[in-house]
Nucleic acid binder design. Structure first.
Lengths: 233, 233
DNA sequence: CGGGCAGTTGACCCCGCTCAAGCGCGGTGG
DNA sequence: CCACCGCGCTTGAGCGGGGTCAACTGCCCG
């Protein structure tokens, strides 16, 4: 049994994230040794946009959101990271400041791989480097897709798509509810719309028996109809 | 003198694109040998989204646009490539189909590096691989920024921003006009709006003495005001 | 000369944003 | 224990940004 508050065992993340499969046993041991660990409570900020990121983060448990803040202070959520996901590497590898703020939405434990060590691994282990490149290229593909969606789809179509994406990424619990619990404001921050619009459209989807709502718990009742809606635009 | 229609000399691109600086002389020679070259006329499609890409392309001259097509057939332009830029690597490295269609907007000559050779270089030359990672991470940063912009800025703010970006990427000719000549429809496809809206806003900017227009030639008269407009949102 | 395409302009109207008010609930302090 | 407050959620009203449609122009090219 792993106890909370103790340093998480890397093997846990190695199972969840294929990029670590490329490490030799020696490299894995060194990584376990040089990493730092930290626990964060819901609401805490791990780093702020436009600040320097000091390492690559690996999520051992919990969920964080990555968002950009608009000039009027409104959050645009770009993506989430959960168990096994790494983040911060974009900033490290492009030698740039963070382009998003990272905030905890579900208590989490993360490990921090110092930048220099991460870069060393990328340089020395071509399998690892290929995995990191692939990761960043896949993310780039997602970002491009979202540019299209947000430019051409209407709010209802985007909301339907986001619900499907959350379903894919976080799955459902035994009651059939999405395993991520967002405020209406956060949902609006993903979809790129106003909170009130999300509320109206969610209750519209509920009326149409496509989803069920219980506070922040969302149950997807009719995936096929959601797909139809999201593909209209 | 390099004649048109003849195989371009790689050194030309090596000067324009820092990723090639990492190649050894031997690697550069081999690259020159294995590459293929092609000329395309304005309007030609180099590859279509959702098809397999067979290599990484390097632009020797001309300009291409990369766009995604919405369900209603409308183009969303994601970015451009010009002299020295490479494209197609996202698809190759994420082992995915093309996520954009690539179409020529100014007659161009491009060289094609076979996928297998490009991947070999990435695996064997860590400096090259770091450059490619960096490139993809920088692009990812741009894409994230554009998600924020398109979600939160209004059309005029986005148009101003795009004009500034075109200025940065393509510069101006001796008459002070942007060195890229887009149709109103293409401009709309970048900004993510309707053609008519672009037309109205361009003539608004002209009335305000911020830009000057002569058919597809655009002169930026007041960069500072453009910046102000683009940063309002 | 005629067809077609890019560009332009006006009219219309709807999606979705904003503002305001009210509700429910949990936490805090008297 | 209750009162109060604040936050998240909900709903309604109103309106304006910008998308759509239609008509017209100018221009290129066959």
């Amino acid at each position: 049994m792993i106890e909370k508050e103790k340093t998480p065992v890397c093997e846990f993340c190695f199972i969840n994230n294929p990029i670590f499969k490329n490490l030799t046993n020696d490299e894995a041991d060194v990584l376990s040794y040089v990493k730092n660990c930290n626990s964060y409570k819901k609401g805490e900020i791990i780093y702020n946009e436009r600040t320097k990121v000091h390492g690559v983060y690996c999520v051992n448990s919990g969920i964080v959101k990555h968002y950009k803040t608009g000039n009027d202070g409104k959050e645009q959520i770009i993506r989430f990271s959960k168990k096994g996901d790494i983040f911060g590497f974009r900033s490290i590898l492009s030698e740039d400041l963070a382009c998003t703020t990272t905030k905890v939405i579900e208590d989490c434990t993360v490990c921090i791989i110092p930048s220099s060590h991460f870069i060393k691994l990328v340089k020395e282990n071509s399998g690892f480097s290929m995995s990191v490149i692939k990761l960043s290229c896949v993310e780039l593909g997602h970002a491009n897709q979202y540019i299209l969606d947000i430019a051409q789809k209407n709010v209802k179509e985007r909301l339907a798509e986001i619900l499907l994406l959350l379903n894919e990424n976080f799955g459902i619990n035994k009651n059939g509810e999405l395993n991520i619990f967002l405020t209406r404001e956060e949902l609006a921050g993903i979809v790129g719309t106003a909170t009130e619009s999300v509320i109206r459209l969610l209750s519209e989807l509920k009326k149409e028996n496509i989803i069920d709502l219980d506070k922040r718990k969302i149950k997807l009742l009719d995936i096929k109809k959601l797909k139809n809606i999201s593909e209209l635009g």
